[in-house]
C-alpha cells in the first residue's frame, strides 16, 4: 500500500537534493575552516593573475617610456609600488572572500540541517512501519 506521508516527505527530499541540495551537500563535506581557507586561496590566486594582467596592460601602455628610460629608472621605487599595490589588492580580496564564503557556508549549513531533520522524520516512519510488520 502507498504511504502518502512518506511519499510527500521523500519528494521534498528528492527535490532539494536535485536543486540547492547538490551544492549544500558538497559543501558539507568540508570543515568550515577548510572550505573558507580553500576559497580564500583560490581568490588570492585569481586576483594575482588579474593583477599580473593589469600590470601587463600598464607596462605595455607605457612601453615607449620604459624602454627609453630603461637605464635611469628608479627600479626600487617602482618595485615597491608594484608590491604595495599587490599586497593591498590581495588583502582586500582575501578579506572579502573570507567574510563572503563564511556567510555562504553558514547559510548552506542552515539549509542542510533542515534537510537532516526531514531525513530523521523519514527514518522514524521507516522504524514505525518495520515495527508494525
Amino acid at each position: 500500500m502507498l504511504d502518502y506521508k512518506k511519499i510527500r516527505l521523500m519528494t521534498k527530499l528528492a527535490v532539494y537534493e536535485k536543486k540547492d541540495g547538490k551544492e549544500d551537500i558538497r559543501l558539507s563535506k568540508y570543515y568550515k575552516t577548510d572550505y573558507v581557507r580553500f576559497q580564500v586561496l583560490k581568490t588570492i590566486i585569481a586576483s594575482t593573475v588579474a593583477y599580473a594582467l593589469i600590470l601587463g596592460l600598464i607596462v605595455f601602455y607605457n612601453i615607449e617610456y620604459l624602454v627609453r628610460n630603461a637605464v635611469v629608472l628608479n627600479y626600487k621605487l617602482l618595485g615597491s609600488y608594484v608590491l604595495g599595490f599587490y599586497i593591498m589588492t590581495i588583502t582586500l580580496f582575501g578579506l572579502g572572500a573570507l567574510v563572503g564564503y563564511s556567510i555562504k557556508y553558514d547559510v548552506s549549513r542552515k539549509k542542510l540541517s533542515k534537510y537532516y531533520k526531514l531525513l530523521r522524520r523519514l527514518r522514524k516512519i521507516y522504524d514505525e512501519s518495520s515495527q508494525d510488520s
Binding site: 585569481a46 586576483s47 593573475v49 588579474a50 594582467l53 593589469i54 601587463g56 596592460l57 580580496f93
Partner: peptide, 12 residues
C-alpha cells in the same frame, strides 16, 4: 586586448 580585459573582469 579583449581577452585580457575579459579575464580581468572575470577574475576580479
Amino acid at each position: 586586448i579583449i581577452i585580457a580585459i575579459l579575464m580581468i573582469l572575470y577574475l576580479l
